[in-house]
Structures are given as structure tokens and as C-alpha cells.
């Protein structure tokens, strides 16, 4: 993507910081005057992606949680990135396994990238901007 991010966040991947990211997107949605349902969808999808990073990326260690958002003409692209273990099935997962299916349902498109030793794991979510009020 050549468009530079309109919002960039870098926080330690801790449970308390998931809300920090979510509230930043709440502020972005307010600024863009997004419809309530779209704003709620984005906040939930971003929360689920960040929760996955906190729960799965760094095992018992701590690492960075990076979130970018780019506002384009008719869509907003959100990338949640970590430098951890990648996305793998985990039999001992503490969650219900609903995170990625929720993101896939809430977003217009979902792409998973990287996760190898030399590439970060990226969850790339695209949301359509339906009311045309967004401005970069």
C-alpha cells in the first residue's frame, strides 16, 4: 500500500492496551463521522485482532503491538502487526476461537500475512465507508 497510514499506534502487547487501541479507533470513527454500526464493527474487529496478538504472539514474553489505519476514498484499511510466533492452531487456546471468524464477518476483506522468522505477522482488515463522509 503506497498510501501512508493516517493513524499509527505502537504499544506493548498487554491486555490493558487493547482498550487503548480500541478507543483510538473510536476517536477516529467520531472524527470521520462513521455510522454507529460501522464504527462498532471496526472497534470489535480491531479488538479481536489485538487480543490475538496479546494472547498468542509472544508466549510469556512481551513484544510490540503495531496498528496502522489508512483512510482511502471508499474504505479504511487497518493492519494489526506483531513480531511474534505467527498464526497457528493452538489446542490450548484460552479463547473460543471466535476472533478470526468475527473479524472475517465484520470486515469487507481479511488477509493474513507473514508469521515467519523474518517477517511480521499482519492481519489486514478492510472496511467499506458507506456514507462517504471520510476524509484522509
Amino acid at each position: 500500500m503506497s498510501h501512508p497510514p493516517d493513524l499509527q499506534l505502537l504499544v506493548p502487547a498487554r491486555a490493558e492496551n487493547v482498550a487503548v487501541v480500541r478507543h483510538a479507533f473510536g476517536g477516529l470513527a467520531d472524527a470521520l463521522e462513521l455510522p454507529d454500526q460501522l464504527a462498532a464493527d471496526i472497534k470489535l474487529a480491531v479488538t479481536e485482532a489485538c487480543t490475538n496478538v496479546v494472547l498468542h504472539a509472544y508466549a510469556d514474553d512481551e513484544g510490540p503491538l503495531e496498528v496502522d489505519a489508512s483512510i482511502l476514498d471508499d474504505e479504511i484499511v487497518v493492519v494489526v502487526r506483531d513480531h511474534g510466533a505467527g498464526i497457528h492452531p493452538r489446542p490450548d487456546s484460552p479463547g473460543l476461537g471466535l476472533g478470526l471468524p468475527l473479524i472475517a464477518t465484520l470486515s469487507q476483506s481479511l488477509e493474513l500475512e507473514g508469521g515467519s522468522a523474518d517477517a511480521p505477522t499482519e492481519v489486514r482488515m478492510t472496511f467499506g465507508l458507506t456514507n462517504g463522509s471520510a476524509a484522509a
Partner: peptide, 12 residues
């Protein structure tokens, strides 16, 4: 004001 899949897991 907000409920995610972690919260759903607690309810389940």
C-alpha cells in the same frame, strides 16, 4: 458498552 469474544467466552 462493549463485549468481545473474550467476554462471550466467560458467559459460555
Amino acid at each position: 458498552t462493549f463485549l468481545d469474544s473474550t467476554g462471550l467466552g466467560v458467559l459460555i
